[in-house]
């Protein structure tokens, strides 16, 4: 474990807690894309298949349970909770996320570290996570007023993967044989997708104006 990875995990944890807090306290999911939340639940479900078979550390297992639990409960809140679901804007959250799942699955069947179920699922979860934010970014461009919590959620989600890139660089130089091309490329693509959001997020923060993404 290194400081970049710990900071990345804590930033990732903060992003899901910010979102859960928003939905649980103000009972609203306005501006939140259910599609992105469903994709993230699928990312964790396919990435943490080994949660009960390979014990790496208490930290690793606890964090996996938190990410699985939070992502599925956010999906439950937006789909089932009688008050929260009313604030879900399904007419705006129209990104066909199934068009993201299939190409990621096909790519995982072609490019993986080993042709085993778990490794293909691992590669699938990496490719899917790289594009999972797209429905949310599209929704933010459509809904003019982005509330602070949703903006913070997206920012933290992007920042966590950027910190992971520093972690991979650190591990590459400190650990022999630490080479994970698939993870590195997927993580880089994922972070680049946030680039324009980061730009507008910092602009709004610097000029102290409401965050607005160009349509």
């Amino acid at each position: 474990m290194n400081i970049f990875r710990l900071a990345g995990d804590m930033t990732h944890l903060a992003s899901v807690l910010v979102l859960l807090l928003k939905i649980h306290t103000i009972k609203s999911c306005a501006g939140v894309s259910l599609k992105t939340q469903e994709l993230y639940a699928l990312v964790f479900a396919t990435r943490y298949l080994d949660i009960f078979t390979d014990f790496i550390s208490l930290y690793n297992t606890v964090m996996k349970l938190i990410f699985l639990g939070s992502s599925f409960s956010i999906v439950w809140y937006i789909r089932r909770h009688k008050i929260v679901r009313r604030s879900y804007d399904k007419d705006q959250d129209t990104f066909r996320h199934y068009f993201l799942v299939l190409p990621c699955l096909l790519l995982a069947l072609v490019i993986h570290e080993k042709f085993t179920f778990r490794e293909v699922m691992w590669a699938f979860s990496l490719y899917l996570e790289a594009v999972a934010i797209l429905p949310q970014l599209v929704l933010l461009q459509r809904t003019r007023n982005i509330d602070n919590l949703t903006g913070q959620y997206v920012f933290l989600l992007g920042a966590y993967r950027a910190l992971y890139i520093l972690n991979w660089i650190y591990r590459y130089f400190t650990e022999p044989h630490f080479v994970h091309w698939i993870t590195w490329i997927a993580g880089l693509v994922q972070t680049l997708l946030y680039a324009d959001f980061f730009y507008y997020y910092f602009e709004s923060w610097k000029n102290n104006v409401k965050l607005q993404l160009p349509a």
Partner: peptide, 10 residues
């Protein structure tokens, strides 16, 4: 570890 790389990251 050579070859099969275990996944120890989240």
């Amino acid at each position: 570890k050579h070859g099969f790389q275990y996944h120890d990251e989240l």
